[in-house]
Lab assay of single mutants.
Amino acid sequence: GTLHLNGVTVKVPSLEKAIKAAKKFAKKYNLEVQVHGNTVHVH
């Protein structure tokens, strides 16, 4: 999967790991997580 954090793109081995990391990051910075196919966006 691919993880987008505020314009930074990170390749992640699995989508589940990407979503987990995204949710952790989003919670910390009070951001929103959106999943588009195998790409996770945090903004």
Rank of each mutant, 00 (worst) to 15 (best):
G1E: 08
G1I: 15
G1L: 12
G1T: 10
T2S: 08
T2V: 13
T2F: 15
T2R: 11
T2Q: 09
T2P: 04
L3R: 03
L3E: 01
L3V: 08
H4I: 15
H4M: 11
H4S: 08
H4D: 05
L5N: 02
N6P: 10
N6I: 12
N6H: 14
G7T: 07
G7R: 06
G7C: 15
G7Y: 07
V8W: 14
V8Y: 13
T9R: 10
T9N: 06
V10E: 02
V10D: 01
K11T: 10
K11Y: 14
V12M: 14
V12N: 04
P13M: 11
S14N: 12
S14R: 06
S14Y: 07
L15Q: 00
L15N: 00
L15K: 01
L15I: 10
L15M: 07
E16D: 10
E16F: 07
E16I: 13
E16P: 07
K17F: 12
K17M: 13
K17A: 13
A18H: 01
A18T: 05
A18W: 09
I19L: 10
I19S: 01
K20E: 11
K20I: 12
K20V: 08
K20D: 08
A21F: 14
A21Q: 07
A21I: 14
A21G: 02
A22L: 15
A22F: 13
A22S: 01
K23R: 13
K23P: 00
K23V: 11
K23I: 14
K24L: 10
F25M: 05
F25N: 00
A26M: 08
A26K: 04
A26D: 00
A26G: 04
A26W: 10
A26N: 00
K27E: 06
K27N: 04
K27L: 06
K28L: 08
K28G: 01
K28C: 14
Y29T: 01
Y29C: 07
Y29V: 03
N30F: 11
N30C: 14
L31M: 11
L31P: 00
L31H: 03
L31R: 01
L31K: 02
L31F: 07
E32M: 12
E32K: 09
E32L: 11
V33Q: 02
V33F: 11
Q34Y: 14
V35F: 06
V35L: 05
V35R: 03
V35Q: 03
V35Y: 05
H36Y: 10
H36L: 13
H36T: 12
G37W: 08
N38M: 09
N38D: 06
N38L: 10
T39M: 10
T39F: 10
T39A: 09
T39Y: 10
T39E: 13
T39K: 07
T39N: 09
V40K: 02
V40G: 02
H41F: 14
H41W: 14
H41S: 14
H41E: 13
V42P: 02
V42M: 11
V42E: 02
H43M: 11
H43A: 09
H43R: 11
